[in-house]
């Protein structure tokens, strides 16, 4: 009997001592936390994405309680529902939060944008930009090495054809990609707006066009066609005033280079690429295959 009792007692005593220590510690080291902080924290989604500008949900909750003026609509993943709940806990007006989404303002795809060098260093946009302004001829556009993809915690951005593209369904507008982009071409835009100028080049029209087929050349056609005074050319680049834009897509249809993109499907005045005849397509395929073979031979 004694053989069984000793270990049981000993472990029980150790457990008791530990729990007594913890009870004691929770009293002595108790830090006063406003109970509203706990409540607000429970409402927040807990993704710790940092989209609100604080170091996580805990930090945002404590700042919300501490700072009366801080808007409770900053949590993009939570959206309006969370904002309303926070407002209820804190006893203030919720205010309407415009749902936002990240948008990459560049359309310099592999075919459209000219490359000036093959970057083989560190595969990160920051690295490439650190050595050269950009491996592309256009020094404003997307470098396409995926710093934003690595920053995104929601799997909402990917590199397609050399340019970062946002998956609008997954995007929660936390702004992590915008912060990671060394070119600063990712912007948070109202989710409801469908028309965007997918170019960030402030080069003069001729230069911009030379560097990239899809560049904004500042021709002002969009300004003239807009019925709502919502698009203006500044520094050789068309810029949309989202507070006025009704996403009608007229400018996108008018744009000669295809720099303005509309998610709405409107018949385009000019097709982005002229249609190829079957013979041309075959020729292109053969050419590509030959190139591939040559590259493979080189490697071997």
């Amino acid at each position: 009997m004694a053989n069984v009792m000793t270990p049981v007692l000993l472990v029980a005593v150790i457990g008791l001592v530990c729990s007594a220590l913890l009870v004691f510690a929770s009293k002595v080291f108790h830090v006063e936390v406003d109970e509203r902080v706990t409540q607000v924290r429970e409402v927040l989604p807990g993704a710790n994405c940092g989209g609100c500008g604080f170091a996580g949900c805990d930090d945002y909750a404590s700042n919300l309680v501490a700072d009366e003026a801080l808007p409770c609509t900053k949590c993009s993943p939570g959206g309006a529902a969370v904002a309303a709940q926070i407002a209820e806990i804190l006893g203030r007006a919720a205010g309407a939060a415009e749902p936002e989404v990240a948008q990459v303002l560049c359309n310099g795809t592999c075919g459209a944008s000219k490359k000036v060098l093959e970057w083989q260093g560190l595969q990160s946009c920051k690295g490439a930009k650190g050595w050269f302004s950009s491996p592309n001829a256009c020094m404003y556009g997307c470098i396409g090495l995926g710093d934003c993809v690595n920053a995104c915690k929601f799997d909402a951005i990917g590199i397609v054809d050399g340019v970062a593209r946002v998956n609008r369904e997954n995007c929660v507008a936390c702004g992590a990609c915008a912060g990671a982009c060394p070119q600063k071409i990712i912007k948070l835009v109202p989710k409801k707006s469908q028309v965007h100028v997918l170019c960030s080049s402030t080069d003069k029209g001729a230069v911009a066009r030379k560097n990239c087929d899809n560049a904004c050349i500042g021709c002002m056609k969009c300004t003239k066609v807009c019925n709502f005074d919502a698009i203006h050319v500044e520094d050789n680049l068309a810029r949309i005033d989202y507070s006025k834009c009704k996403s009608c897509g007229l400018c996108a249809a008018e744009c000669p280079t295809g720099a303005i993109n509309s998610f709405r499907k409107l018949p385009k005045k000019k097709a982005a690429a002229p249609k190829m005849t079957p013979e041309q397509i075959e020729a292109l395929k053969a050419k590509k295959a030959a190139e591939k073979a040559a590259a493979a031979a080189k490697e071997a």
């Binding site: 530990c18 220590l21 913890l22 510690a25 929770s26 002595v28 080291f29």
Partner: peptide
């Protein structure tokens, strides 16, 4: 048992001081 309690304790201590 001991390590779990200890880490909990240290965390509380750090939170305060």
């Amino acid at each position: 048992l001991v390590i779990a309690a200890l880490v909990q304790f240290v965390e509380m201590f750090m939170k305060k001081y």
